[in-house]
Design a protein around this nucleic acid. Structure first.
Lengths: 144, 144
DNA sequence: TTTATTTAAGATAAATTTATCCGAAATAAA
DNA sequence: TTTATTTCGGATAAATTTATCTTAAATAAA
């Protein structure tokens, strides 16, 4: 479904959001430990998220990654997915045709529409706040 | 969603099914031309499908690939996907956790269930016959 | 049996994704 | 200003996926 990079990116964003609520900045080292991901690779993905203005980085001593508390509830999963994996998951053809639309559909075009829409709607209606809250209350988990 | 190999595999299977209805065997060359895929790579995928008893191969002169007419309506997309990409698309965690279930869910576990189920149901309820028929009647396309 | 044709199989290569490493740049605190 | 800390950026490497090539094996027809 998503690339490894995107999976790490989502998990990292949730972890950063959770810590930002607690007023804490976190390092790539801490993040990769808590979401069980390769540290250097995760750091690269964090850079992508910073460039897309999804998370914020503070260099130097006592620095780290954070998200402005007020923005956490406004960040949708769809933004993270698009930043890392692009929009192919929404727009790409299920069977890989370059040109696939209602006028020139692949054999599963119609059947994929509802699934694609379901995924799109879910990603656009899920924000970091609710996900971070579930981590905080121990309802869901970011590793193992 | 699916790997390139799986996309080619599905498109190839539909093309073979269509030709089998017309009593024609087809070569990897013809298949790759008609579904617009790399020939040698497509041939590899055809071998996987043969091993999984989804399509049939006939060696030697006048040989090629075919599917027994009576079986075309019984072959589900899910069989092709599982043969090539495995069951990760059904069973794997949306965020890549090794252990993700109702007792120990990832943050999007619940939200993914319906999407996953929708995909599973669609793949299990779509057979090669209907897809091949749409190609035959020019309703859908296998390339470009 | 011989020949032409066709799929099977294994080795290899290219491209992409995933992952690591190291020095530069920035920054807060001493 | 100096120092310790931390992210940033580029180069490199490993792993996986995608793709190609060549030879072997099988088979139908002459």
């Amino acid at each position: 479904m998503f690339s490894k990079a995107c999976e790490y990116g989502i998990r990292a964003s949730i972890f950063i959001a959770k810590n930002s609520y607690e007023g804490k900045r976190v390092s790539p080292k801490k993040i990769s430990e808590e979401i069980n991901s390769p540290q250097a690779f995760t750091a690269k993905i964090l850079q992508i998220l910073v460039k897309h203005d999804i998370i914020n980085s503070v260099k130097g001593a006592y620095g780290g990654f954070e998200i402005d508390k007020k923005r956490i509830a406004t960040i949708k999963l769809s933004q993270i997915v698009e930043a890392i994996d692009g929009d192919n998951i929404y727009k790409g053809c299920g069977l890989g045709l370059k040109k696939c639309n209602d006028k020139h559909p692949c054999p599963v075009h119609d059947k994929f529409i509802s699934i694609r829409e379901g995924l799109k709607t879910m990603l656009e209606n899920t924000n970091l706040e609710e996900l971070a809250l579930d981590i905080k209350t121990g309802v869901s988990f970011l590793k193992i």
